[in-house]
Each structure stands twice: as structure tokens, then as C-alpha cells.
Design a protein around this nucleic acid. Sequence first.
RNA 1: GGCGAGAUAGCUCAGCCGGUUAGAGCGCAGCACUCAUAAUGCUGAGGUCGAGGGUUCGAGCCCCUCUCUCGCUACCA
Length: 675
Amino acid sequence: MATPQRYTVTAALPYANGPVHIGHLAGCYLPADIYVRYLRQQGRDVQFICGTDEHGVAINLKAQAEGCSPKEIVDRYHEVIRKGLEGIGCSFDIFSRTSKAIHRETAQDFFTKLYEQGSLVEKTTEQYYDTQAESFLADRYIQGTCPNCGFEEAYGDQCESCGSSLSPMELKNPVSRLSGGRPERRETTHWFLPLDHLSGKIEQYIRAHGHWKPNVYGQCMSWLQSGDGLQARSMTRDLDWGVPVPLPQAEGKVLYVWFDAPIGYISATKELLGERWTDYWQREDTKLVHFIGKDNIVFHCITFPSMLMEHGDYHLPDEVPANEFLNLEGRKISTSRNWAVWLHEYVADFPGKEDALRYCLCANAPETKDNDFTWKDFQNRNNNELVAVLGNFVNRVLVLLNKYYDGKLPEVQAPTAAEEQLQKARRQAPDRVAAALERYRFREAQLAMMQLAREGNKYLTEEEPWKTQKTDPSRTEAIMHEAAQTAALLSQLMEPFLPFAAARLRGYLQLDLIPWEKLSDGDLLPAGHRVEKGDLLFEKVSDEAVEAQKQKLEEPAPAEEKHPPLKEEMDFETFTQQDLRVGTITAAEEMPKADKLLKLSVNLGFEQRTIVSGIRQHFDAAHLPGQRVTVVANLAPRKLRGVESQGMILMAENADGMLHFVAPPAEAENGAVVR
RNA sequence: GGCGAGAUAGCUCAGCCGGUUAGAGCGCAGCACUCAUAAUGCUGAGGUCGAGGGUUCGAGCCCCUCUCUCGCUACCA
């Protein structure tokens, strides 16, 4: 594309079933905000679009678990998320929500266009419906007896015992894995986006963007070229929470959440701009940039572009600068285990230190690979870089200006070699920052900004105005003029990264935000200009604050009752059909070609069994012999990865996903009946 | 197991199309300085660029094999 006339920048719509954490911020919202602030300073025409994604099954399930309506869930998290993101300085032009009427209309119009022009493939099938859970069941959520081999726990799509592929209707005695109840057959119709037919065009589109980051490009090509290639995807669901499918024959159906979510970008733009929204989505001279985390790559690079392509009126995404993931203190961020730094909590715990988090996350942004955030590093970055380098330089300048000149900027004088060096650094800094940002290299851009502060410190230390003040006061004037210009430029370059401190500094300097192209021109402050002494730009983070945050991480997850609902009642007869026995593991080895399976030998007293169990992630095979276990002994044998598994080991699973053996005490002999 | 991405200084990371003595920030050691939040500046120590082979006049970069990490996916509880 030649120089774009305008920019549409989106940040992934956060899903409204929980708050946002620093991983989301580092991967998506922060880089997006930095980029947008920079574009605005450039005077470019840009709209920064975001909002919450409020549909889909997960929100339904969360509402059920908490005994409230989906609406209550999304209302709650919309606010938490919005406050967190805005609190950290994300400067959205709009932060909307997909539950709004304008979104429903936009998404429906989009669907209708695809439908009317025949882009969607309609398929009617008979599917199982769980009357208790009130939902249709995906193939995988149905279990029953295999018609070919009689295996009783075959899934709706495949029998794991004999390997034959099935359709749910072929199963005998189908059972819903959701409620455990017996599902009934109902006919249902869905509309599919034929990605399989579009794969040629999509591949062409991806190949035309070979400059995308390796992780993004590689992931896309992998999907295009893997095995069966792209599959037609259903764009509708049988559900009551979402955007209703705008067809008379589609009662009780909604658009698939991944169909409606990206359209949320479009509807939010409409809400913001009215008629003018088409400029930002349909004109070829607009640059469309999606900031996302790596989990969203396929949807933004393949599914969404396919939708836009089929629709026909739209410009396709130009850039998808997806980041990798951020770890926390060496471990993966985990929402369920509460191993996370929640954005809204940070904003509450560190008032006035919004920039510190922004700085640290940008410096450590997972641009090319997963990265680690530690509180110690956060403290170091804040204390040794923000405070010691940037804040300190600014403070030195403001203090000296006020001490010697009562805040009135002295006259310029003929530059010495030292001034020329600093002036050169000032001329180059805006270009360096800009060049890095244009390439989505945020760490490098922020470093270039900091480099100017280092130059400033070096200049002051070497020129020593506090000495010349005693020997040659006019020389001090020259030095302070130069130093002040450097602080002024910093107040501009800081803006994308550290907007809070930048605004404060501009306040002390009595300076407005200046268009980017004028930043390299020379002096930003005229001689005689008055500056205030101001306050410290940044404060240190104490050891105590760091310790407190680490402590907080160690606290167990808030006891949110997450126990799964009880299954359907069964009669005593059914219960007595299962034969549980005490056993002891005598040998354990890893199954080849499987990441989760262990092959166990179990002594049941009267016989030795081979049992394949999916617990490899949780236990080391070498430590298992001798482990006491409870075994379902009369379970039909089943082949897993070529090995017949003769029974099942009972495990207790905690809310955090950890597995624990249901181990009989030593007094219980092998083979003893459990009931 | 399949696919994708990564492995570079104590730590966190750069390294464009293969080209001289492999870089930055932090940390560490020494020196200088005192305007500044014991802040700053300078100097220095530190790397068999995951391992092994290959292509090349020349490989951190290209090719092959292997190991480990992360993600998607498959096999589970």
C-alpha cells in the first residue's frame, strides 16, 4: 500500500467472562495503544477500536454456574475490563460491547448479505439435543455404544476402541456428556462458511503478506497446508445467548461467537462514526491493523479475512502484529489458579504508577517469543531506569533551571562540540522512535526514547553546569538551555509509552503536544520561556510493595464455588454394576507417541492388569510403582494407542486441575472390593 | 506423535539480504562526580551464539539430525 490515508486499529475484544490481566495488556492492548498514540502525534487519521466480546457458550456456562443471567455476567465484566484498560491509559476512541443493538444489526446485515448472495452453505442434520442442559450437543459430547464393536463408551464422532469413524446417530444408547442424561433427536439447520472452497484465495492473501512476523505467517501457512486443509465452518449455533440468526426459519439460533466478535470491530466503528464508518473499513487507502495475542492468529488471519472476502465490500486486514505470551514469575499465567496480575487490581494497588507497568511490559514485550514478567524486574526497571535515568534527568534540569534562573529559560549560545553531539541525538531520536514503531518494534522504540535521556544525563555530567556557574555563568546558561530543550523533546517522545508522566512533564514545561514532524526541527522552547519546578516524575517501588505482590500471588484462588453440577440420579441397580477393586501399581512406563498416556501394570491380588491412564503430565512413571489405587475392574477393555487398557484408575481432580490418586489405606488388601 | 515458533553474556532480550574484533539494558567490579529520588557518567570483566554434522572463500544467520522450551492438535483423567 502507498501511504495510507487513514488507519483503523483494533485491539482484540476481551471476552467478558473475566477480568483482563497483564498478559493481555503486554500482548495486545499496550502495543496497540502505543501505536495509536504515535499515529495521532503524527497527525494521521486513526480510529482505535475496542470493546467487550459478550456472546458465546462460555458466558452461558459461567452464568449457569453462578446462578445468574448472562447479561449480569457481561455487565459486570464489561465495567471491570473497561476501567482496568482505561485506568492504564488505553486511549480507545470507543470501547463498545457486542451486546449492543447496533452490533446485532451490523452482524445480522453481514450475515444476511452472505446468505442472500449464496456464500453460505446450508446443512440440515438431525442432532442430539440435551433437554436438561437445553442445548444441542457437539459430536464429541455424546457417548454411546459403538454399532461396530459394541464398545460402550464410543464418542459421537469416533469409536476409540475399534477406530471406526461414526456419526452420533449411529450410536446405541447415546448419553449426553453434559448432563449425563439421554439426549433426544432433533433436526437442526446451520449455515457454513466454505473455507475449503476459499483456501486458494486465502493462501494468496497470506502469501501477499510474507512480511508478517514469523510466528504469525508460520502459523497461517501451517493451517493452510496441514492435513485436510481448511474445513467449512458453521457460522451459527443452537443457543439462546447471542445475535439471533436473521432468518425466519432460524428460531432459537444465534451467530457463532467467532462470526460475530470480529464484526464487533465494525459495529463499534459505526457507533463511533455513523455514516463515515465505511471509510475505515471499505476503502483501499485505509490501513487496517489488528493487535491480538497469539491465540487469535488463525481467526484474524484466516477466518475473518475469509468473511470479509466473501462479503466483498471490505478491505482486508493489512497487519496482524500478534505477540507471544507473557509468563509470570517463571510460570504460565493461569486464570483458574489465580496466577495472574489483574489489571484492575494493579491500577488500585499502584495509583500514579500506571506508567511503570506500561514501561516494564513494553521493555519486556513478548514480541518474538514468550517472555517472563517478575515483580523484581518490574522494580528494577522502575527504580533503575524510569526513576534513575529518565525521572532523574528531568528533575536535574528542572531543579537547576529554577535554582539559577527562577525557571526562566536562558538564551541560546554558540554550540560547542558537546552541544552539537546532543543536538544530533535530538534530531535523530524522533526518527529512531518512529522507525521502530512503524515496524511494530515497541521495545526498540522505547529504548530509543530512553537513549535520549541517557544522552541528557551524560551531557549534564560532563559539562557540569554547577561548576561553570561559579567560574563562567554564561557557559551555564548555554548548558541549561540545551538541557531544557532535551527535556522538552522527551516530554513529546514519552507520550506513546508513558502518557501520564509525559503529560505531567509537559505541564511543568508549560508545553503542548507538538506534531511529530516538528520534533526534529530544533528548539521546542523559546528563550525566556518559564518552566515550573514540578514534582518528581516517577517514584521508586519499595521492596515491601514487591513482597506484597509476590505474597498476593501465593494466595489461593478466591474460593469461587466451581464444583461441577451433580449428574442425573441413578438407581442402586446401576450403581452395583460397577466393580471397584483395590490395587497396587507394580510398573509404569510412558506410552510411545502420546504425551499424556502412561501404561501401568496393576496388581489386583487375583490378577495383574494393564491399564493405560492419561496422567503422564501429573506423575513421573519412575515414582509410581507401589502406589495404591482404586480400579474400575469390570470396565470393558479398550484399545488406546494400540495397547488394551483393562480398566480405569480412579482419580480425584481438584478445581485447579491437579489429579490425585484415590488411594486405599495400607490395610486394604489388593483385590478388596470397594463399595 | 503431527505442525508452527523459539534456544545468543549472570538476568531480560536485539542481531536486516550469510561478510571484519557478536550487541543493548539491567546486574557485577573499579574510577570520576555531587545539580539530582545514594540518583548520574566513564572504564572493565563476562558469550565454544542449545548439541553434532554439512554447504560456502566465509555461518549466530542457509541445509540435515538430535535435545530442550512454548503454542496448536491428537491420544486421557
